[in-house]
Amino acid sequence: MAAKKKSDKAARLPVGELRALDVGDLRSKLADQRRELMDTRLKHAVAQLEKTSELKVMRKQVARMETILNEKEQRA
């Protein structure tokens, strides 16, 4: 079985590392990820994106970060 390669663009942080971040760091990483997602969407729109699967990975990463951020804010 071939090993999965992680793309440079959609660098996915493990959930444990995301949960270890404080709220401020998590917000800044979320903003960066959203910006990166927007850039990737623009590339997809002008047919410059080779791996369209990156969009799905990035959307899931943003949702994961938002979920963890909401959990942390509700606890505080």
Rank of each mutant, 00 (worst) to 15 (best):
A2H: 01
A2V: 08
A3R: 12
A3K: 13
A3S: 09
A3H: 12
A3D: 14
K4D: 03
K5L: 03
K6F: 03
D8C: 13
D8Y: 11
K9C: 14
A10G: 01
A10S: 12
A10L: 02
A11I: 06
A11T: 10
R12K: 14
R12C: 03
L13E: 02
L13R: 02
V15N: 12
V15H: 09
G16I: 01
G16P: 01
G16V: 06
E17N: 13
E17S: 10
E17R: 01
L18N: 00
L18K: 01
L18W: 02
R19K: 13
R19P: 10
R19L: 04
A20V: 01
A20L: 07
L21P: 00
V23G: 09
G24R: 11
D25N: 13
D25L: 14
D25R: 15
L26I: 01
L26H: 02
R27C: 02
R27F: 01
S28I: 07
K29M: 10
A31R: 08
A31C: 05
D32S: 06
D32T: 08
R34C: 03
R34D: 02
R35E: 13
L37N: 01
L37D: 02
M38S: 14
M38G: 14
M38I: 13
D39L: 08
D39Y: 10
D39I: 12
T40A: 05
T40F: 00
T40V: 10
T40C: 05
T40D: 00
R41W: 03
R41Q: 12
L42S: 14
K43G: 09
H44A: 14
H44E: 15
H44M: 14
V46R: 15
V46L: 10
V46C: 13
V46P: 02
E50N: 11
K51T: 07
T52A: 09
E54F: 05
E54C: 00
K56R: 02
K56S: 08
K56V: 12
M58K: 04
M58D: 01
R59C: 09
R59E: 12
R59D: 08
K60G: 15
Q61F: 10
Q61D: 14
V62D: 00
R64E: 00
M65K: 01
M65A: 06
M65L: 07
E66T: 05
E66L: 09
I68T: 06
I68M: 04
I68G: 02
L69W: 07
L69H: 04
N70Y: 06
E71Q: 15
E71R: 10
E71K: 08
K72C: 10
K72I: 13
K72Q: 11
K72R: 11
E73C: 03
E73P: 00
Q74E: 06
Q74Y: 06
A76P: 04
